[in-house]
Computed example of a mutant assay.
Amino acid sequence: MDHDSTTAPGHASQPDPVTRLFDVRGKVVVVTGASSGLGEGFARTLAQAGVTVFAAARRVERLEVLAEEHESVIPVACDVTIDADRRALVERAIAGRGRIDILVNTAGIPGPPYAEQETEDGFRRILEVNLASQFHLATAVAATVPEGREASIINVSSVIGMVSTAPIGGAGYAASKAGVLGLTRELAGQWGRRGIRVNAIVPGWFDTEMTEGLFTNERSATWVRRNTMLNRGGRAGEVDGALLFLASPASSYVTGQAIVVDGGWTAR
């Protein structure tokens, strides 16, 4: 008999060692940008994995729908560019569950595709949402982690922050997502000795609210397929494996890294 995944009669069975690698049950997670796109998918996946999810976004009505579907999702109205909102989000999680084990910085906005179309205010807004908010939330969460406790911070970047994707992408968006990668490495370096791991997920082309029209336009859809090794865009849920890896004990010795999930786009 295989005793690795069983216990003595009368005792509840325990997960086998491999399953425990990816076990995040009981964790407390904050996910920003959870009202749509990858953020919404992340919140759903984590809730299904047995995590308490404080789902944050400006469109709280969408979060409430998510909470109705998953009782472990707690909706929190939050504009990540507002300091009071960020502090209230962190305080809500600490007051409700006593700790934050994982932060997933997903909130982001796109910009115009051409540099000539960027305005000073628009450029600043993109950096505030996509980059500065990740820094401020990461530092706020890190401040709640006591000595001897570990935490995982997962920042969401983009292939647009690694390579030029002109004519799709935009200067402001590219700058913000490249900044996320630098921020991830630096925070990992500063906080590693405290047991706080900081990593980034780098998605390729996925059909989300932010990429609306990309896959319904045959010209742009063909462009994605032609330049992707797997000859297609990403499917719903295909980033979730990287998320669970970085959130779980399976990545306990991984920090300062960028996990690219792009079907081979940046490897060409």
Rank of each mutant, 00 (worst) to 15 (best):
A34K: 01
L214M: 13
E128Q: 11
E118F: 05
G195T: 04
R125L: 08
F215K: 09
V224D: 01
S157T: 04
A171Y: 11
A8S: 12
F123L: 10
D121N: 13
D207F: 02
E218I: 12
W265V: 02
I82M: 12
G33F: 00
A171D: 13
M229P: 11
F123E: 07
T144G: 11
A12W: 14
L137P: 00
A47P: 02
A77R: 15
R197G: 03
A49G: 11
G39D: 00
R219V: 15
T211Y: 03
V60T: 09
G204F: 09
S164M: 10
E150V: 14
S133Y: 00
R99M: 08
L230G: 03
T165V: 08
A56C: 08
V30H: 05
S252Q: 13
P112L: 01
T228M: 07
I126H: 01
T208W: 00
I94E: 10
A43W: 01
A200M: 03
V156M: 12
Q134H: 09
D207Y: 03
P112S: 01
A242Y: 04
R62L: 11
V24E: 04
R124H: 12
A57E: 02
L181P: 07
N217V: 01
V30F: 06
G50E: 05
T81G: 00
P249E: 13
S152R: 09
E209C: 09
A8M: 13
E69K: 13
L187G: 09
V159P: 00
T222R: 15
G192V: 10
K27F: 09
T32C: 02
A84G: 09
W265I: 02
T255W: 03
G237C: 02
L21N: 07
L103Y: 00
L181D: 09
L38P: 12
A67E: 06
M1I: 12
S251L: 09
A12G: 14
D4F: 12
S252E: 13
N130Y: 06
Q257F: 01
V261H: 05
R225Y: 02
V73E: 07
A84T: 14
V60Q: 08
A88G: 10
G264F: 09
D83S: 14
A258C: 01
N231D: 15
R25M: 06
A178R: 13
A93H: 05
V198L: 07
F135G: 00
F22V: 06
T222K: 15
N155G: 10
I259P: 00
N105Q: 01
Y253I: 04
Q14F: 10
A47N: 03
A236S: 12
V60K: 10
A242W: 04
S13M: 14
A107E: 00
R20C: 06
N217E: 05
A56D: 01
A171W: 08
V31N: 07
G161Q: 03
G96W: 11
R59A: 08
